[in-house]
């Protein structure tokens, strides 16, 4: 199989990886870069367990070829906070029991991170709609929504004050 050199930035670090063009981004991250936080759930772009951030967009890494990611700037769950620490969203998921088996969680949090970048003061409806690309089988979403709303509040003292 013909391999190509793929250069991409992941969590602030530049990586050069030799990969077949058909290799899926999720495999490149998990197998080549040992970033196993994002998971594989459905493989048809429905579940969002593989969600990472690519060039400021939430994407499902099971439906992106490594070759397409040539030159991309990618953030994974491992890059959201310094190792061993939790960012506001991660802490909020812990605080509000926004996870159970943990399998969907990296994709959830990575997606929620982008959602709050674009809409820092979401309504519950905004959160439910904005998280609809991520499936969870354990929580029924109620505490996920609660976690994200709480994180938004935490990140927006101004909003809190206004309420």
């Amino acid at each position: 199989m013909t391999k190509m050199n793929i250069s991409l930035t992941v969590n602030g670090q530049v990586h050069e990886v030799e990969a077949e063009p058909r290799q899926l981004l999720i495999h490149l991250l998990r197998e080549d870069l040992n970033l196993t936080g994002a998971h594989i759930g459905c493989e048809t772009s429905h579940c969002g367990a593989c969600t990472v951030e690519m060039d400021g967009k939430s994407v499902k890494a099971c439906t992106v070829f490594a070759a397409q990611a040539q030159g991309a700037d990618i953030t994974t769950i491992e890059g959201l906070a310094e190792p061993g620490t939790l960012n506001v969203l991660q802490e909020s998921f812990r605080e509000h029991h926004g996870l159970q088996c943990g399998y969907c969680t990296p994709g959830m949090i990575t997606r929620a991170h982008r959602l709050l970048q674009e809409n820092p003061t979401p309504t519950e409806e905004d959160v439910r709609f904005g998280m609809a690309g991520n499936l969870c089988r354990c929580t029924g979403y109620q505490n996920i929504v609660k976690s994200i709303m709480a994180a938004a509040n935490e990140l927006n003292p101004a909003k809190e004050a206004a309420e």
Binding site: S45, G48, T51, K57, S58, V59, K60, T63, V64, R111, L115, F129, G130, M131, A132, G133
Partner: peptide, 9 residues
């Protein structure tokens, strides 16, 4: 159409 992630792509 689809969901947020898919709409980005």
């Amino acid at each position: 159409i689809a969901d947020p992630q898919v709409r980005y792509m």
